[in-house]
Computed example of a mutant assay.
Amino acid sequence: MGKIGIYGSSFDPITNVHLWTASTVAHRCKLDKVIFLPCSSKRRDKTMETADEHRIKMVNMAIEDNEKFSLDDYEMIQDGWEIYTYHTMNYFKKLFPEDSVYFIMGADLLVDIGRGMWTKGEELIAENRFIVMARNGIDMLSAISRSPILRNHDDGSTFHLLDKGLAMEISSTYIREEFAIGGEPRYLLPEKCYEYIKKNKLYQ
């Protein structure tokens, strides 16, 4: 039996911190594989700056040298009204029936689920396991204890709370803004992705 982490994000674009986070989680949580799951531009709760095809290509370029990393376009090919993390996790559990599958997320998303802001959030928590990364200003244990949705489904193994040990955050928004104003975010993202963005004039 293996351990697999599902790492969803817009990756618009993918950054070096995305890669460092995935590597840290894989090492600390003894994961055999981290699957990068780019969000679909058809989702009603997100607005993408870049076409799905560009984001897919950049993620593939960024992870191609790490045998533990792979990409899945499951959410990108779903109809927009059917894209919920609950369904996504069911898909991966059926895809890997012999393995333990974890959803990787930040503590900010844990708070949102606890507040009832996610569709099928309670079912998601009740039927899955999570690796939750610390975010500045969020007490993860307190967030769980304050939310009936979270605390009533926490059997001691539901949440693996992880502090990466270094509060390094590079937002994709910042990188997009830098490209837009002619800035130089070169070393904030993989070199291949930087060159791809310049070549295709993305975010300008």
Rank of each mutant, 00 (worst) to 15 (best):
Met133Asp: 01
Leu110Arg: 01
Leu95Asn: 07
Gly114Gln: 06
Gly182Lys: 04
Arg135Lys: 11
Met105Asn: 08
Ile125Thr: 12
Ser145Leu: 08
Ile113His: 01
Gly116Pro: 07
Glu177Tyr: 10
Thr173His: 06
Ile149Tyr: 12
Ala167Cys: 05
Lys164His: 12
Ile104Leu: 07
Arg151Trp: 11
Leu95Met: 15
Gly183Thr: 07
Leu124Phe: 14
Trp118Thr: 02
Ala180Val: 03
Met168Gly: 01
Asp99Gly: 07
Leu141Ala: 06
Ala107Val: 08
Lys192Asp: 11
Phe130Pro: 00
Asp108Gly: 02
Ala167Gly: 05
Lys201Ile: 03
Gly137Ile: 15
Leu162Trp: 13
Glu178Leu: 13
Met140Gln: 05
Tyr174Lys: 11
Arg115Asp: 08
Tyr174Pro: 00
Gly121Lys: 10
Leu202Ala: 01
Leu202Asp: 00
Met117Trp: 08
Tyr203Cys: 01
Tyr194Lys: 06
Lys93Val: 02
Lys94Tyr: 04
Val111His: 04
Met117Tyr: 12
Phe103Lys: 02
Lys93Arg: 15
Ser157Arg: 15
Tyr187Gly: 06
Arg129Cys: 03
Val111Phe: 04
Leu109Gln: 12
Asn128Ala: 04
Glu177Asp: 13
Lys192Leu: 05
Met140Lys: 03
Ile181Phe: 08
Ile113Thr: 04
Pro185Ala: 11
Ile149Lys: 10
Tyr102Arg: 11
Leu110Gln: 02
Tyr203Glu: 01
Arg115Met: 11
Ser172Gln: 07
Thr119Asp: 06
Asp163Ser: 14
Asn152Leu: 11
Ser171Gln: 09
Gly156His: 12
Arg186Leu: 03
Gly165Asp: 10
Arg115Phe: 03
Ile104Asp: 00
Asp108Thr: 02
Arg151Ser: 14
Gly116Glu: 07
Phe92Cys: 08
Tyr196His: 07
Arg146Ser: 14
Phe92Thr: 13
Met140Phe: 08
Gly137Phe: 11
Lys201Arg: 14
Asn152Pro: 03
Lys192His: 05
Ser157Asp: 14
Thr173Asn: 09
Ser145Ala: 13
Trp118Ile: 02
Val132Trp: 08
Pro97Met: 12
Pro97His: 15
Lys120Cys: 08
Phe96Ile: 11
His153Lys: 15
Gly137Leu: 07
Ile125Phe: 09
